[in-house]
Amino acid sequence: MSTATITSKIAKLQSLITVANLLSALEKTVKAAVLPLTGIVMFLFLWQATASNIVTSLGQFPGPGDVWNQSKILIEEHHAEREKADAFYVRQEVRNAKKLAKNPDAKVKIRPYTGKATYFDQIFTSLYTVAFGFLIATLIAIPLGIACGLSEKVYSAVNPIIQTFKPVSPLAWLPLVTMVVSALYVSDDPYFEKAFLTSAFTVALCCLWPTVVNTIVGVASIDRDLIDVSRVLRLSWPVYIKTIVIPSAIPLIFTGLRLSLATGWMVLIAAEMLAQNPGLGKFIWDEFQNGSSSSLGRIMVAVITIGIIGFILDRLMLALQKRVSWDKQAIFR
């Protein structure tokens, strides 16, 4: 056999190997996707079958097809509304230009567009509200949790309060929060809407607890040896908390934060319905009150949106945890 034939054979073999590698990679992806896809398809069939058997006063319960159509309509409405808004601003600019041409000293103003909020505006409002509430909760919960975890005395003093407020439903808080916000947040030129504050505070009150409880457990279970090291070194409190307490407790703090965010997102929808904060909760409430034949389909779109956003929020927290965590080998799920 000549060297040339051998080289060509090797080349052929190599290309075969590459193809085989690609195939096995493809197989893996397919295998990984098959089960979830099967689950989703089966769910869609079941949904369709059940939906066609339910007739409500607002017509047939929406199946997957109706929901798909409604979501397209919602997107179209969003674009239409945006075009209107753009046109509105263009008209104003034209008018202002004319005014200035006649009289260069004329005072011109651009008025903001006050059309109705689209579905995407509402999603954004909801996200903004939950983020604000979650932030407040986190700023209270982590320091409180650390204090309780470090000191048996603080824990004994605070624990009954935590246990009492932990199981309270957001709906119970809401009227109180509403009245308190109306009474205390009095301003001629309010930066925040009252409904926004009411919703955000209700979210904060409800999503405080998982972070508090998990931070306490995380801080209380610091390795005894590390505590002894800190005592031998006579670490000051700030250094002790920064170098030993927080890194030890970080995994459980994040477990708490993820639970908190999930709770907060759930609570938010209910809070928005009642507080009339212009987010997804209000969208659902308005559609329910509206009661047109397309309402149930639109509500179903919101339900699925809420679910997907909740899922994404959890993944974001997980990504953040991976970034912050010192233990890159740890398994996160």
Binding site: D225, L226, V229, R231, V232, L233, P247, D327
Partner: peptide, 19 residues
């Protein structure tokens, strides 16, 4: 009371795993 003039080597090293 504990202090750095009496350093302790612990059985399980007691290093801070994040440093």
């Amino acid at each position: 009371e504990p202090g750095p003039d009496r350093a302790v080597v612990f059985q399980n090293h007691a290093l801070l795993p994040w440093l």
